[in-house]
Every structure is written in structure tokens, then in C-alpha cells.
Design a binder for these strands. Structure first.
Lengths: 225, 225
DNA sequence: AAATATCGGAGTGGTTCGCTCCGATCGCAA
DNA sequence: TTGCGATCGGAGCGAACCACTCCGATATTT
């Protein structure tokens, strides 16, 4: 990896730098404004032209798919870190949730149904679920997390807190407070009120991604002929 | 449509009924989709034409202002109910939050800055804040709510849970579970972790509404009224 | 039948957005 | 310096969307 960089100066170095700048800007802007953010906003954030994005990703959807996958991989890494964590189950779960929220891992959740699902995404999603399952199971086994908590409650919790309407410093602080409140609510204890209803189903979670998803194959041709 | 012969006036009765239908549809759709929902969506939900809305409200903004005010009044009524509630402070706060979330009182929060603020809205907002202040103060006084909770934490909590991305029955159930978790996190108890940062300021909360405000005094009268 | 009140929704003008195209710019080799 | 290929920025295009208007249709009253 170092060797490749060695020979790249000048223009190619700029291109390589832009690879990262562009992706980071996309992550930041989509996390803040949601998947509906215009491409021009990404370009402005990155300090580059719009075409710089389209030279790297064929379409906005392709970029969103890439970011989705990155989020999932980040979530997986975070779950692995939590499973390796030494300490009680509740603080392991807390660490996982905090890292995921900090990385806005669930920010693209509302885009479900508007972008097609790739095979990589499906695979990453299932792996992530298994790891999170294990994390919650362990945390409940040592009695530090409420026993009526379902794995998907954690997923939805992350998704809820991944969306930040405005990004003032004050707003970020408030989200941190609300998250702390919710995390306290995850603890075991006899003062807990029972969670209402039935635990959420995995089908309802992953099913959102297929609702109105057209396959990428049959896209309308831009030139009306 | 079928002719309806009420005991009173036929056409006027329909108009009066539409007054309510239209407003209820607007509440429902804006609560689900946010203030960005198109007017056509409201009309479809209400089962009426678009013009039926514009015959009653001069513009979308005017309608949103009306709904904002109604939300605030609903929140005020809910706070009064909670203050009259007999029981511990925590369950009073829970009842207040639950009613507010059920009514999607905070659903228009993200519209802050995009619609002008009327005098009525300001007054209602301040009254609501005083009542909620009192509610939280009482709940902390009897020791059932965590002492580091700020009044505005509750406001933001309601706003967070007022936004529902999709409205399947399953999704509603999940939101109820997450809300129950967060409400458990409001309780007092020595297992609580301290809330991070400084309590949110009232300026940052109400300040959002004044960013791009305009005057709303003169209204074009569409039919010579 | 005329007058009046309300209705639905197609049409309008303006805005937004994804994406393309092309001239400008840069590093490098001759 | 000069020419070349890679990369850049952003103006502009076509499509889609949206708030709002206008008008013919329908129902009620006179």
C-alpha cells in the first residue's frame, strides 16, 4: 500500500486524495441531511466540483450503496470490538451503540426502499445481526441488561439516534443526553416497566429494503429513444 | 359524490364537514411525512381536491402555522392533565410524554426556520414551557425522576419520538418500545449514569424558529372577502 | 332557469435535482 | 517551451416536483 503512494505525486496524488475527501464528505452530508441531500451539497462540502463525484461513482444510488456497505462494516467492526470488551454486558452494549451512533451508522435507514440492495449489503447485514445477537445475549446472561430487550430494539435505537436534524454543537450535546437516557433505560433492574407489544421481527427490519426496490437492470434510458 | 340531505343545509354541511376532514388529514400526513409533504398528499388523504385546502387556508405556510398552534395547545392541555394527575412524578411525566408523542406534538419541529412564527405561537410556547417546568420540578421533588434531567430534555425527547418514518403497525410498535426504554431512563436511581454535557438552553430551542422568519400580516383575499 | 356556493383537478410557472459536457488547469516528458 | 493525457470545476439540460390558480361541473336555493 505504501509502495503505491510512493510514485504518485502531483495530479494523481490529488485524485487519490479526492477519493477520500469525496467519500468523507458524502458520509458527513448524508448523515446530517439524510439520503435526500443533493449532490451539489456533497460537492460544496468536499470543496470540489460535482463531476468529481461522478468520475468515481456512476450514480447517486451507487454512492449510497457504497456508503450503506461502509456503515454496515463499521457496525460489524464495532460489534466485534464490543464482544472483545472486558466488563459487564451493559457497558459493552453501550460502547457498541455509542460508536455506531457517533459514526451515524443508521443514518441511511430512511433511504430503505429507495435504493437497490446489493449482495454485499445483504451479507454484511446478516453478519451484523448475528454479532449483535451474540452481544445482547451475553449482556442479558450476566444480568446487566433488561431481559425483555430484543436484538432489533438496539438496531432501531441506533437508527433513531443516527439522524440529526441540525448540526449545531448544542444539538449534538442534546442528542448525547437523550442517548444517555435511553441507554440507562436498557439496564436491568426491578424498576423497569415491561416493554410493550411483541418484539420486532427481523422480517420487518430487513423487509423495508425491498419494498419499492426496482432492480438496477431495467432503468429507463435517459435518451428517450 | 352522493347528495346528502342533512336536516339543515346540504352544501354548507359538506363544507363544514370538510373543515374538519381537511384539518385532520393535514395533521396526519404532516405528522407522518414531515412538513415537506406535498399538498397533493394531504388532498389525497382527505379525499378532496387541492382547492378545498386553499379555500380554507391562504397558503401552505398558513396551514402549518395553524397546525403548530394546535400542537402547542394540545401539549398545554396534556401538561395540565399531568399536573392534575395523582401519583408519583415519574408516571405523571410519562403520561405527558406519551400523550404528546401519540399526538405527534413535535412532528413539526424540523420545520423550524421554514415557517414564520405568529404571536399566538410564541405565547403558547412560553406557556407550555412554564407548565412543563413545573411538571419536571415536581417530579424531581418527589425523587422519582433523575435530578440531572432538564426540562428541555423532555421537549427534545418528545420531538425525537414524534417523527415516524413509516407508519406500518410494526413500526408503531417499535417506537412504543423505544419510548418505553427512554422513559425508564428518566427514572431516578443510583444505577443512572450522569447525563453528559450542560443542560440545553431555552435559547437554542426557541431560537431555531426565528431564523428565516417573515411577516405574515397581509393576506391576499382570493374571493373578495 | 337563474343565482349562488362549493366542489375536483388539470394546468401553470417556478424551482430543484441528477447528470452530462466541455473548456480550463495541471504534471510530466520530450 | 510545447504537446499530451489526466483531472478538474461548474454551467446547463431535461425531467420531475410542487405550491398555487383557474375554470367547468355539481349541488342547493330562489
Amino acid at each position: 500500500m505504501e509502495a503505491r503512494r510512493e510514485r504518485r505525486w502531483g495530479r494523481q496524488a490529488e485524485a487519490e486524495r479526492n477519493d477520500r475527501i469525496v467519500l468523507e464528505a458524502a458520509r458527513a452530508v448524508f448523515a446530517e441531511q439524510g439520503a435526500g441531500a443533493p449532490m451539489s451539497a456533497l460537492a460544496e462540502r468536499a470543496g470540489v466540483g460535482i463531476a468529481t463525484f461522478y468520475r468515481r461513482y456512476g450514480s447517486k444510488e451507487e454512492l449510497l450503496q457504497r456508503l450503506c456497505l461502509l456503515s454496515m462494516e463499521e457496525s460489524i467492526a464495532s460489534a466485534r470490538e464490543a464482544l472483545a470488551h472486558e466488563g459487564d454486558g451493559w457497558s459493552a452494549v453501550c460502547g457498541f451503540v455509542r460508536r455506531c451512533v457517533a459514526a451515524r451508522v443508521g443514518a441511511l435507514g430512511p433511504a430503505a426502499g429507495t435504493i437497490a440492495v446489493t449482495g454485499e449489503m445483504t451479507a454484511a447485514s446478516e453478519l451484523g445481526r448475528e454479532l449483535l445477537d451474540e452481544l445482547v445475549r451475553r449482556a442479558q446472561a450476566d444480568g446487566t441488561v433488561r431481559p425483555d430487550l430484543a436484538t432489533l430494539d438496539v438496531s432501531y435505537l441506533i437508527e433513531h439516534f443516527s439522524r440529526i436534524p441540525r448540526c449545531t454543537e448544542e444539538q449534538a450535546g442534546i442528542s448525547r443526553r437523550l442517548l444517555a437516557i435511553a441507554l440507562d433505560g436498557l439496564r436491568a433492574g426491578d424498576q423497569r416497566s415491561a416493554l410493550p407489544g411483541t418484539p420486532p421481527s427481523w422480517e420487518s427490519y430487513s423487509g423495508r429494503w425491498y419494498e419499492s426496490g426496482g432492480s438496477k437492470e431495467d432503468r429507463p434510458s435517459p435518451s428517450g429513444g
